[in-house]
Every structure is written in C-alpha cells, then in structure tokens.
Amino acid sequence: MDRADPGTVRLALVVGGLVLAVLLGFGLGRMNTGGALAAGGVPQSALTGHTHAPGTGAHSHEAGQAEAAEAGGLAVSRGGYTLTPLAAEFTPGQADELRFQIQDAQRRTVTRFAVVHDKPMHLIVVRRDLTGYQHLHPSMAADGTWSVPLTLPQPGIWRAYADFTALAEDGRQTATTLGVDLVAPGEYAPRPLPAPATSNPVDGLTVSYQGDPEPGLTVPVSFRVTAADGSSPKLEQYLGAYGHLVALREGDLGYLHVHPEPELVDGAMQFWLTAPGPGRYRLYLDFATGGEVRTAEFTVLVR
C-alpha cells in the first residue's frame, strides 16, 4: 500500500481544521444570535432594545436592514398572526370596551405572550389625522381575549395597533405589530398636522427634541425635559425605561419600532429611529415625572 506524502497529509489537516473552525464559529454565532434570556424568558435584546456605544452616529445595518426599516401595523395579519377585534364601532365620547384576540396561522387563539417593557401587550390608538393618541395596556382572559376600556373622543376612523411578542409552542418568539381600523360614526373634521418644532410644552414642562432622521438609516434622536426655571426634573422609570417613543408615518399610518437606550445619555432620553422613507412623521414620547406619565408630541420631516 502506498504511503501518503507527509506534506499532503499536513495540508489536508490544516484545511480540515480551518473548515471545522468556520463551521463551529457559524454554529456558535447562530446560537448567540438568540441572546441570553432575561426573567420571563424574554431575550435581553427585546428588553433593552437597540443599544449602541456612546457617540455612535447615524448608521445602517446590512443584516436585516430592510426589516428594520419596514413600517408595521399596516395589516391585520402578519408573520402568521392575525388581530381579530370582537367589535370595531364605538360611540364618540362614550366610554366603552375594546375586546380582541390574536390568532395564529391555524386560527387558534394565542394565549402565550412574552412580557416586554413590563407588559405582554401594548395597544396604541390614534385617529387617522394622528390626533387623540392613547397608549393602553389590555388585560387577557384565560381564553386569550384581550380587553381594555376605550373612549374615542371624536368621530372619525381610528387606528389601533397591537404591539406584542407571541410565544409559540416550540418556544419561538415572534415580535410584531398588527393594526386594525376602529370607527366612531359622525362628521369627521380632520385636523392639520402641526408644523415641525424642536420643543413643545407639556404640563408646565418643556420637552426639546434633537435629531435628524434620514431614510433607511438608524439615527439617534434624543429628548430633554426642563422646568420653567431651567432646571431638569427627575425622570422616572416607566414600564422599565426612562421613556417610550412611538413613531407613526403620515398617510398610511405606518408604525415604527423605536428602540430606547436603557440609561439616560447626558441626562436625556435617547432612542434609535429608522425611517423607511421620506415624509412627515408624528412622534409620541411617553415619560414620567413626579409619579405621573406625560406625553409630548412632535412632527418630524424626513427628507
């Protein structure tokens, strides 16, 4: 039997070792992509959002960039899940209850959800002219029916967004936002969108905005709160963060996921916003001071 040349054997071992290292690295990379689980089985990335080192500027993410820039809440079905309201008509100005279910691709009612930002379900309601913003947290019955008190103060077509992370039987987590229209019959008099401004008064405080969103780029936007005497009131944690930001696109009311930094940045609330394209957007900032949750609203023009 012929003996293999020693040089050939060494070359084969080196190549084989490199291939094995690449395969192991690929496998470990896929394992690490899932992230460590925090309390409640939620990935740390889902809790802390989109974190970056201090000083990071506008940038893009090649892996999954299209998904990051895609607006949500445009359909009642997405990713194998469907938002099913049990009633969609409300009397303007009258207290009522919104009840709905989330169903999977087999039309089964989903009952397992991850807790993200202290709640398993975040419900955003706004009129189609982007007025009347409400951030609600429904409760779920044992059969998977969600319910929450809701008053639509003015006639018109309203949009309700269910923002949640579903847990499949095999443990997979699917974060998505589904949207559905609600109707408040009556004469609809839409209000024009306020002009862009870098500061707005809220309950005797001034909230200032800083940032320059660009289509397709992930850009830091920050908000600073000051009192009438120029001092900075103490910001309190609300739903596990110093602030929560919802961004909606004028026209189709596309819902943008905006990720907060877990800590204040130089005393300001900082978020990372990826605008899918040019247009006007309405930003809704929820923050807490003095034990009370307040909301500041901004119009932002993306060119």
Rank of each mutant, 00 (worst) to 15 (best):
R3T: 14
A4Q: 13
D5K: 12
P6R: 05
V9K: 06
A12G: 12
A12D: 01
V22S: 06
L24S: 05
G35R: 08
G41H: 07
V42C: 07
H50F: 08
S60I: 14
G64D: 02
A71E: 10
L83R: 02
L86E: 12
F90E: 02
P92I: 08
A95S: 14
A95L: 13
E97Q: 13
I102D: 05
T109P: 09
V110A: 14
F113E: 10
V116P: 01
V116Y: 11
H117M: 10
K119P: 01
P120L: 08
M121Q: 12
R128I: 10
D129N: 06
D129S: 09
H137V: 09
S139E: 15
M140I: 09
M140P: 01
A141G: 10
A142Q: 14
D143K: 08
P149N: 08
L150R: 05
L152V: 02
P155W: 07
G171P: 00
T174C: 00
T174H: 13
T177K: 04
A184G: 03
Y188T: 12
R191E: 15
P192S: 08
L193V: 11
P194Y: 12
P201K: 06
G204E: 01
T206F: 07
T206G: 00
T206L: 08
Y209R: 09
G211T: 13
P215Y: 13
G230D: 08
G230C: 13
S232Q: 15
P233S: 08
Y238T: 14
G240A: 12
L248N: 02
E250C: 05
G254H: 06
E261T: 03
E263W: 00
G267N: 11
M269N: 03
W272T: 09
P276E: 06
G277V: 01
P278S: 11
P278H: 08
P278L: 05
R280Q: 10
L283C: 01
F287S: 06
F287W: 02
A296E: 00
A296S: 13
V302P: 09
